[in-house]
Design a protein around this nucleic acid. Structure first.
Lengths: 359, 359
DNA sequence: CTGTTAGCGCGTTCAG
DNA sequence: CTGAACGCGCTAACAG
């Protein structure tokens, strides 16, 4: 037999249910019953059919089945960039969770373009897909009407809200607030924040900044704008630069909240290069609890956004919508709006809480 | 109209070609012609049909089309772990390249399990997929027969060889050799290597180690086993530990070849923590040229495995096989075996070559 | 428990 | 250049 890879299409000679039926001397329906594990098939016929399947090397033709069933068992996941650890992680978790529910995932990087994001929404693929988990970055509140699509949709993040779709988001504000409060409780008073995006109102930077300020506010610490260092990109080097800038200004903080772990890693490095100690001189907290954070030295205390929960929830909700059932305990006509609680993963880049603060 | 997400399946009410045909007062065939950009359709009818499509919001039904055509326009990419930057990068590039050729990609993480890898190969999905790009980690030469699958397959890496499938690989040996030679030319004589896997023969660690030794050999430098530090995992902390171990032993090298950029990053950190300078005291070279490497300080000199070329080649070859044409300039019955040339990306973690060595 | 029949939506002969 | 009828492989009634 020539290898399929040397032929045009593998479909040409693949055996069908009909072939199996003939060989097993049963009807097509019976084969279908066996293949789909229909309960009421006699053990004898089942064996007969399986034998024929084995001998012919029969594999079910998924496209045909899809056509008949009207769905494909495939969902799409649209994210800005698969090379970002955050999204790679998310994708991996979504794929894993989907698999548990018998769903496959088509990952679609939208590559920071508005076009890409719109195409993910309206592209021709959509008869091929049962639903979409959508994490927009470029689209904003002005684009809400774009979300009126003829298939189930779960929206990730907090850039767009509509009462007409299900949302799953992470706690940006609460997470940053938690981190900042933790630093305050551990004795920090001059807490810098790295990675702000001045002028931005949507997006993680703005939300996390708000959390930071809220924490300060509640603790009665006045916000010092000089301690907020912008960083357009959130790479390691940006964190290093930001931290150096701060240190050069003579304004040495006793704590740092970095808006992601890369920034934190850079800050760590800048601090240590000056002979200062983390956490003795300066505590550092990161964001995202990326896999790397545990491998830094000192291991990085970080806010874990609960990506597992995001993945689990969004896939489950989508699956329910596809199946036409109400997700979770949601009332009819209502939509899921769920914020996943973030947790602070304490490692060695922050000082311990004094005994009085622990519980 | 109720939102689809509140209904069972979106398929129920989607307009078909028949609906479009009726509305445009033409035959189904004509609609099909228009949709598929068949050349010989009068401008008038084309317009008429397009208008009807617009009004009805018609979208072509991909599963039906797939059934008829016998292929799906979808390929799978099986990799060990999507959260590894290397594979995330590769996936992203493959998706991009596939898109250019009108193909969609189903990413399938096999999660370091033999089962997962076998399932990717033989799983039921395969009538749903036109071909597979396959990067095994657990499978070895004993499993060659598993690769006899009824669809086009492109094999990535150097773990399994068969004359019966197309291969695309990166230059592990050559890359490591290149890196080591570069260090030698820049004046290093005591070159450590971090990340070896003693006892392993397949796999990147072994191949890269060979390249390192070849370079030493050619330069007439004797290999000192104490300079080869094993590291099972290739995380940042492993690099840091390995480097510390070396430094503690009193055996201070003047150059380090790390088997990936994470290891290199850790080594960098360990070196700097001792007050030693990179590259003045010790040069460091990494592997993979990951996105992070440029954001380390000093920016990391690294071997770029040419992932773009791997992605481009493997998708192209697969596409050709799917279309039944000979890839590249390959003779019939021959198979592609292509190693992508790696390049050394020189940044600031290595000393400059003396004038005599430059070209 | 099993067989028969009728499409799912599309592309494609083959006539016109 | 266009229309009518067929079948891709499968599942869901409904009989038997």
């Amino acid at each position: 037999m020539p290898k399929a890879s040397e032929m045009g299409s593998e479909q040409s000679s693949m055996p069908t249910m009909k072939d199996v039926a003939k060989r097993a001397a049963v009807s097509i329906k019976t084969v279908s019953n066996v293949v789909n594990n229909y309960e009421f098939v006699s053990e004898a016929t089942r064996k007969k059919v399986n034998k024929a399947i084995q001998e012919l090397g029969y594999v079910i033709n998924v496209p045909a089945r899809n056509l008949r069933l009207g769905h494909t068992g495939m969902i799409a996941l649209a994210i800005p960039d698969l090379t970002l650890p955050y999204f790679a992680q998310l994708s991996s978790l979504v794929i894993e969770e989907a698999k548990k529910l018998g769903l496959r995932v088509l990952v679609e990087p939208t590559l920071y373009s508005r076009e890409g994001e719109l195409e993910a929404l309206h592209g021709a693929q959509h008869s091929m897909i049962d639903g979409l988990i959508y994490s927009p970055l470029e689209l904003g509140m002005d684009d809400v009407r774009e979300l009126d699509v003829p298939y189930p949709l779960v929206l990730l993040g907090e850039r767009i809200f509509t009462p007409d779709t299900d949302h799953v988001a992470t706690e940006n504000v609460e997470g940053a607030k938690h981190a900042t409060t933790y630093l305050i409780n551990s004795g920090c008073r001059k807490i810098a924040v790295i990675g702000t995006h001045p002028g931005e109102e949507l997006g993680s930077a703005a939300l996390r900044f708000n959390g930071y300020k809220e924490a300060l506010d509640e603790a009665g610490i006045e916000f010092d704008p000089r301690l907020a260092v912008p960083a357009r990109m959130w790479h390691r080097l940006d964190g290093e630069n930001a931290m150096n800038e701060l240190l050069d200004s003579g304004l040495v903080p006793d704590g740092v909240v970095a808006f992601n772990d890369m920034l934190a890693s850079g800050a760590l490095h800048a601090i240590q290069m000056r002979g200062l100690k983390v956490p003795d001189d300066i505590s550092v907290i990161g964001f995202d609890n990326s896999e790397d954070s545990q491998y830094l030295s000192p291991a990085l205390t970080s806010i874990s956004p609960g990506l597992e929960a995001v993945a689990r929830l969004s896939v489950r909700v989508l699956k329910d919508r596809i199946d036409g059932v109400q997700p979770l305990g949601i009332a009819p006509d209502e939509h899921v709006f769920r914020k996943v609680t973030s947790t602070l993963v304490i490692r060695n880049s922050t000082r311990e809480l004094p005994a009085s603060q622990r519980n």
